[in-house]
Nucleic acid binder design. Structure first.
Lengths: 217, 217, 217, 217
DNA sequence: AATGAATGAGTATTCATTCAT
DNA sequence: GATGAATGAATACTCATTCAT
């Protein structure tokens, strides 16, 4: 009992290096697990699949993650953070790019994420759905977040006179669904459309509506 | 699945009665399974849950369905059929109700289905997602079907001059996503919006767009 | 739902036979488990050992017992009941056999149990000790019961004037320990003593004491 | 176990100091392990429990003990030695305290050990029972030792004419059991009896027997 | 000597499905 | 057709021990 008081936590290279190795291995496990989850789905994935792919002993896995569920949750957190960072940054200040250009940019970032990281995307759009109350809540919270952001943007546009009167809450959900389905589409048929075309279509449809100018009904 | 359909029985009264009983029991199993699947989710549901709720012996279950997977698939087929029948019937002929009224009606039927049959809806919108390649394909096929129907409607509208120029394929996916998300919203927060308001919001946003009349960008 | 109301619980031969089979199989599992637990000890025993010895599938085991712990507890209950029934029946009424003869009989029954059922005995005397708080409590309760019984007997003897003054509580524990150790001895070295000699030695030592008549200190 | 004892180190100051540190740390591990084993039991105790409590790295543990089993065995050896030293010292020479006083003293020493070192006592009386063939043998050997000592004492008493005729082997086991159970009693209900009263009760019962003077049967 | 990350054998329990009655 | 006892493959997680640093 008295001995350990003399022990000093070395903040030297050794522990720094150890922490780094730890982070790396955790990262590797996450990467491997992502690939396996995306390919086989959560339930078809066995811990064995992950540790075999990661070339790691069974016990090692549990050194880094408490459970199969935990690594999936961590993975999901990663993706959601990525999506968040693809969304933030729309600014409606003077001198900023036009509203339309900015939204277009956001859409392109989102859709590109799907194209570049299909595994990550598959996680949010497919594997995480209906998995678990805890996961469901995380996902619901995330969509709420996006929805809040979008609602604010719409409100902003309305108060600036750019957008007309409508229920921003409902419309925000509508747009979210449209984007979500576009992402899903890109995930399932990556070759069918260009990211740019999709972003344009989304924007045009929502900004200008579908009626021909002559239409009255 | 196909096995039962191909089986033929002599058409006397006895087998008619038997067939009827068979159909009833099958129906009851489906109803019970729907409730359980919707409440607990596919993976958390054990055959025991179903047969206990249905007051049926274990072996009896397998007399009516080949497997847990099979009863889920049958259930899914049921829902998809229900949704189909909520969608079909939009006619763009002369003397028919206005395009807008018809689409509004379709949307109301869809959203009402969610409200009245939350269990069924939950099955398509949550439980079936990412379950299984076979299920995925069934679901994808269904969405393709809806998409094709919607694309046709849009093309129709364009050829009638009611709708302006845009890529009907992309826009159809967009609209589908918007509807889907609206249904999901109604499923998760049934009290938050009226079916009618949602249908209106969906229509307005897509028909007229969000820009204020004065907006140029 | 309406169908099953018509089903009747048949109290005929079929379910009677089923219940009997069930009891038999449970019994067999208990017997086999007893042998294995006694030979290898609780912790070294794997469920596989039991089901292999019982020629039964893994799932079948769990049809009859909730867990490894549960079957051990059931087994322990069995033994304790056996020991109880070896102890009860000491009567101090008029016309009854002499106190000494009766106690001798009880001791013989107890020690014979060890000789005839070494596996059962090993369970109480060795395997169950320190296994688990729940088991510990069961065991402690049982010893308390024996102790209460013995204390009563001693009090009885005192009030009849057969026994001299002493603290019956303490002495009862003392005697219990002597018997327990005798049983353990018989378990470990079955050939070393006859049941009868042990019962005699226990009785003599406790009734008459060890001092020689001449002893004053 | 024996390995460490045979290892020799050059006797200069450095290694003396080192050896001392080594002994200290070993001692600390033993103390900590004792506490943990006594509280949680052998099987519920994980090496992690010990090293966390001892504030020592995992590998360090194995520098001092070959295995979990080994540290338990070492601990058990400690207790057994303590008990031995509480027992030895009964001398039946002339001028020595009376036989009764000496035995009383031995009993008090034994029972006090239980009171003062409940953790150690729990180890012998509960945790070690039925643990392992190796441990069992160690325990059996120890009881044999006690038994031999007690048998000798009884024989001695008989040859001195202090004790009457009886089978000393059997009676020695009997007494051992009585003492053992008294210790267990004190362990489980430390408040229920005084050490002195227990020693007295044990002695009185065994020396004078339980029959009233008038008793003939 | 000390550390603690890595190892991997070990195992209780679940549950979809079968089949004898 | 109905039953439900029996089956056994499947798998997440634990923890004593090792060993490179």
């Amino acid at each position: 009992m008295s001995i350990e008081k003399e022990r000093r936590e070395p903040d030297d290279g050794r522990s720094t290096r150890a922490a780094q190795l730890r982070t790396e291995r955790r990262r590797e496990l996450l990467d491997v697990a992502l690939a396996v989850f995306a390919q086989r789905g959560y339930h078809q994935t066995r811990i064995s699949d992950i540790i075999e792919a990661a070339q790691v002993a069974r016990g090692t896995f549990y050194l880094y993650f408490e459970s199969k569920h935990a690594i999936f949750a961590a993975l999901l957190d990663d993706v959601l953070a990525r999506i968040r960072s693809a969304v933030v940054g729309v600014e409606l200040g003077a001198g900023a790019p036009s509203l339309r250009a900015q939204i277009h940019g956001t859409l392109v970032r989102l859709l590109s994420l799907v194209r570049e990281e299909p595994a990550l995307s598959r996680l949010v759009l497919r594997e995480a759905v209906g998995l678990d109350p805890a996961i469901d809540e995380k996902l619901a919270g995330f969509y709420d977040e996006l929805h809040r952001w979008l609602t604010d943007a719409l409100l902003n546009g309305q108060s600036l006179g750019l957008l007309r009167r409508f229920d921003p809450t409902l419309v925000a959900w509508t747009i979210l669904g449209a984007v979500e389905r576009s992402m899903r589409l890109l995930l399932e048929r990556p070759r069918s459309f260009s990211v740019d075309a999709m972003a344009d279509a989304l924007l045009d449809a929502h900004l200008f509506g579908l009626l021909s100018g002559a239409a009255t009904d």
